[in-house]
């Protein structure tokens, strides 16, 4: 029993630095969601039900841009597809967990929670991994809900925040997230292809241009990968 409690606590403790790191994003998400026209309750409900930081951010910017529901759903799916990789990584260690627990850990499997679980998996293997994952996932979930609620409350208290450039906060965050990756040629080509397509298709309704641009970027990336492999094979 004490081992289980200890592992839950260890998971929450190891997730703590990442929880603090998401503070500004949770608050900005909550505030922006309200500024984009969602009610504070709806903004919080999205964190409770969907629990996917980057997808929630993107959804809010799509909502304020007047995107159609299927575009938002498809974008969410494409942005979150990488989580299937996390699911595949944790799966071998989770075989003895029981369906209910696997379903719960899956719900909490964000980028941050996966990073914490994977590190533990590398260092300690399967030893008390389930309670550890529950501590990390549950802690991170409560943390995200708290910052979202505070942000949504701020957005409601100061309705003028929408005019203060919160839309800028979003795109600045996105730009700062991808810029460090633009060192190698491939991500630069991906960004150029996606950015150009997005610019040329920006007049399309329902933000359909976003989907086209995303596919153009990914296609350019796959093409660059092929080219590199072909060159390596030739060398």
């Amino acid at each position: 029993m004490t081992t289980i409690r200890h592992a839950i606590f260890a998971g929450a403790r190891d997730a703590l630095p990442l929880m603090i790191g998401t503070l500004p994003f949770g608050v900005i998400y909550g505030t922006s969601a309200v500024a984009a026209g969602l009610s504070p309750l709806a903004a919080l409900a999205m964190s409770v039900i969907v629990f996917a930081g980057s997808a929630q951010f993107i959804a809010v910017s799509l909502i304020s841009g007047g995107a159609a529901l299927p575009v938002i759903w498809l974008t969410t799916f494409v942005v979150n597809l990488r989580h299937a990789l996390y699911s595949a990584t944790v799966h071998p260690a989770a075989q003895g967990w029981g369906l209910r627990w696997r379903a719960l850990v899956a719900f909490w499997l964000t980028d941050e929670v996966f990073a914490v679980i994977e590190k533990r998996l590398m260092e300690r293997g399967n030893d008390a991994l389930l309670p550890y994952a529950l501590g990390a996932g549950g802690g991170f979930y409560l943390n995200w809900l708290t910052w979202t609620a505070i942000g949504a409350w701020l957005g409601q208290q100061f309705p003028d925040l929408a005019g203060w450039g919160l839309d800028f906060a979003m795109i600045a965050t996105f730009a700062a997230m991808i810029a460090p990756q633009l060192r190698a040629p491939t991500p630069v080509v991906v960004a150029l292809a996606a950015g150009t397509t997005a610019w040329l298709t920006r007049g399309l309704p329902f933000k359909l241009g976003l989907i086209l641009a995303a596919f153009a970027g990914v296609a350019a990336g796959v093409w660059m990968d092929h080219r590199r492999k072909a060159r390596e094979a030739a060398a």
């Binding site: 795109i171 997230m177 991808i178 491939t186 991906v190 995303a214 970027g217 350019a220 990336g221």
Partner: peptide
């Protein structure tokens, strides 16, 4: 390639 593509497109 998805994150760079989607975020740049936004």
């Amino acid at each position: 390639h998805v994150p760079v593509a989607v975020l740049t497109a936004i």
